[in-house]
Amino acid sequence: MAPSAENKLTGLIAATFTPFTSQGEVNLEKIGPYIDYLTEKQGVNGIFVNGTTGESMSLSVAERKLLAEEWCQKAKGKLDQVIVHVGCLSLKEAKELAAHAAEVGADAISAMAPFFFKPRTAAALRSFLQEVASAAPALPFFYYHIPAVTGVNVSVRDVLEGIEELIPSFRGVKFSGLDLMDLGRCISSSPPHWSFLYGVDEQLLAGLVVGADGAVGSTYNYAGCHVNALMSAFKEGHVDGAREIQFKMQELLSYAMKLGFDVGVNKQLMNELSGLSLGPPRLPVTACPSADAQLIAKKYCQIFNDC
């Protein structure tokens, strides 16, 4: 059966943090309450796990498997989509994680480009993605484009050339790049059953105008309810209302960036706003001073009047 545009992935997806104990070990006990918080407090019904926000490259393969299984198990009946990121520097490990994701019930998989030995051409990157996707051929596959982290600046439009012939399960891109022309060229030339999920939270509205189908981001863990309102306003043609919410997100993130906003700061902010106690980040990412996280949390409350 040919893939249908009616079943394409849309909406808001939270890129989840990985819960750790105070000793830096994976803390699976937090995942159930975390999912409840996302669905009940933020109105988020999809998650992207073991990605950048989840510190995937600081996790072992065994830890990533434990987390994928727990997220999938606890999400049953509560979340519509669990996308497991399986990208690795090692192709063999990426394929191992892809096969495992299929075994534990993931709804889709995704992979970023390897970033030590980098693919220099679109063809090389397509071949890498083809190998990863082949380990879980029944799962929808999404390319995760995040050039600021990987340093792989190959045009996504070039990567997509003929990709569905190589990867029949290909269903779109998590586009975490600033090049909206590249995004627009991808969307304008792609089949309707592909999804383009924008991943730059501070300019989501621009991505939606270009034609993004949804969004994946870290701030949606604690600001998902507001961003859902942004997306609803845009969909209903209320651009001014959507713009007002986007400006508020930009004000918050601009303030946070002055305090060195990174995964560690973001995770501490999540701890402050959600009360989930997800633990510290793992080195080389360092925890931010609690006072800084409290300042950002206070700013969030002031901007959104939501505390």
Rank of each mutant, 00 (worst) to 15 (best):
D201V: 12
E202G: 10
E202C: 11
E202K: 11
Q203V: 15
Q203R: 07
L204E: 10
L205S: 14
A206P: 13
A206S: 15
V209E: 15
V210H: 14
V210I: 15
V210F: 11
G211P: 11
G211W: 12
D213C: 13
G214V: 12
A215W: 10
A215T: 14
A215Y: 07
V216T: 11
G217P: 05
S218T: 15
T219Q: 03
Y222D: 02
Y222L: 06
A223D: 10
A223Q: 04
G224I: 06
G224Q: 08
C225K: 15
V227F: 11
N228Y: 05
L230V: 07
S232V: 06
S232A: 14
A233F: 00
A233P: 01
K235R: 02
E236S: 05
G237D: 00
G237R: 00
H238G: 01
V239F: 14
G241C: 01
A242Q: 08
R243H: 04
I245N: 07
I245P: 03
I245F: 00
Q246Y: 09
Q246F: 02
Q246G: 06
F247H: 10
F247E: 14
M249I: 15
M249F: 07
M249V: 13
M249L: 10
Q250D: 10
Q250L: 13
Q250Y: 08
E251G: 11
E251F: 03
L252W: 08
L253F: 08
L253R: 03
S254Q: 12
S254I: 01
Y255T: 12
Y255R: 03
M257H: 09
K258T: 06
K258F: 00
K258P: 00
D262Q: 03
D262V: 05
V263A: 03
V265H: 01
N266P: 01
K267D: 08
K267C: 06
Q268G: 05
Q268W: 00
M270E: 08
M270G: 06
N271D: 10
N271P: 03
N271G: 08
E272D: 11
L273Y: 04
L273K: 02
S274P: 05
G275Q: 07
S277R: 03
S277N: 14
S277F: 06
L278K: 02
P280I: 08
P280T: 09
R282A: 04
L283Q: 04
T286C: 15
A287R: 15
C288W: 11
P289Q: 15
A291S: 12
A291L: 11
A291D: 13
A291P: 01
